[in-house]
């Protein structure tokens, strides 16, 4: 039995300092919707908890001059939902994020926490991967940027070095005719974990898909960026042949396990089905916009 120290630094530098000083036993607290559950279950017993919700860079949503967005890593699902513009531009990222937990959880859960928890089934991550979001990381040795898909390295682990804190997620500017979508398969209708999750972001010009990215969750040790599925979509009119090819590529990219949430065969098949459905929703949004 050890005591846990709690600190709530006001600045990013203080947060990095406290986190680095805490060593291996330190944990970042954003919403706490994973950390507190893990502590309650006895999975982790942190020496230091660094609460980052007082740090401005982690809690603000900024729309950049070129209509991109920088979203603080600790911004809650409820706060992002209330932003007047973010959901218009990135409806898929927002819907993936808002699927996490209950209304109460949405008041706490964050994109940064969802990403750094390292779950392959994290609901916000496939859509962020599809969006081409870039993570800004601050550590004792300075700042660096990484594509979201490069952050998780396996279930429960990330490439963040000791003392590094995820600060924000940058979503790039979008050309006209762009949108995104996220769908997940769960046996129930809510309060569940994705058996498969698919995020698709695309751009359509004159009925032709000119850009696409596909992120797939819960089918491999980390959320996958499935470039072959995107290639099958790009240049097509999203006709059945293109969707079938993309679905095939999506299923082919899967490297899942049999577990209590689904079988290999089921996940592989469903990844393709969801790719088609998600693409159709994203395309409808892109053309409606």
């Amino acid at each position: 039995m050890t005591d846990t120290q709690y600190v709530a630094p006001q600045t990013l530098d203080e947060a990095v300092g406290a986190f680095a000083a805490g060593g291996d036993d330190a944990r970042i607290l954003a919403g706490g919707t994973d950390l507190l559950v893990q502590m309650e279950a006895g999975v982790v017993s942190p020496g230091v908890i660094v609460d980052v919700k007082q740090v401005a860079e982690l809690t603000t949503i900024e729309e950049t001059a070129d209509s991109g967005f920088v979203v603080g890593a600790a911004v809650s699902g409820a706060a992002l939902e209330e932003h007047p513009r973010f959901g218009e531009v990135w409806p898929g990222v927002l819907e993936g994020f808002n699927l996490i937990g209950s209304t109460q959880i949405q008041g706490r859960a964050s994109l940064g926490g969802n990403l750094c928890n390292g779950s392959p089934a994290a609901d916000s991550v496939p859509a962020m991967v599809a969006a081409g979001a870039v993570a800004t990381i601050q550590g004792p040795d300075g700042q660096r940027e990484l594509p979201v898909e490069d952050i998780p390295t396996g279930p429960g682990s990330t490439c963040l070095a000791p003392g590094e804190i995820l600060v924000s997620l940058t979503f790039p500017p979008r050309p006209a005719g762009s949108s995104d979508a996220y769908l997940r398969m769960i046996p129930r209708t809510e309060m569940d974990i994705a058996v498969v999750g698919v995020g698709v972001s695309l751009t359509i010009e004159d009925g032709v898909c000119t850009a696409a990215r596909v992120g797939v969750g819960a089918v491999a040790p980390t959320v996958l960026l499935v470039e072959d599925a995107a290639k099958a979509l790009i240049g097509s009119k999203l006709d059945d042949a293109a969707l079938d090819a993309a679905a095939g590529a999506c299923s082919a990219a899967c490297n899942p396990i049999d577990d209590k949430r689904g079988t290999v065969a089921y996940r592989t098949k469903v990844a393709g089905v969801l790719l088609k459905r998600t693409t159709e929703i994203a395309a409808e949004r892109a053309q409606g916009a």
Partner: peptide
């Protein structure tokens, strides 16, 4: 209850 899947109200 996360993985022992009783129905939720919305089901």
């Amino acid at each position: 209850f996360l993985d022992y899947r009783m129905p939720v109200a919305s089901d």
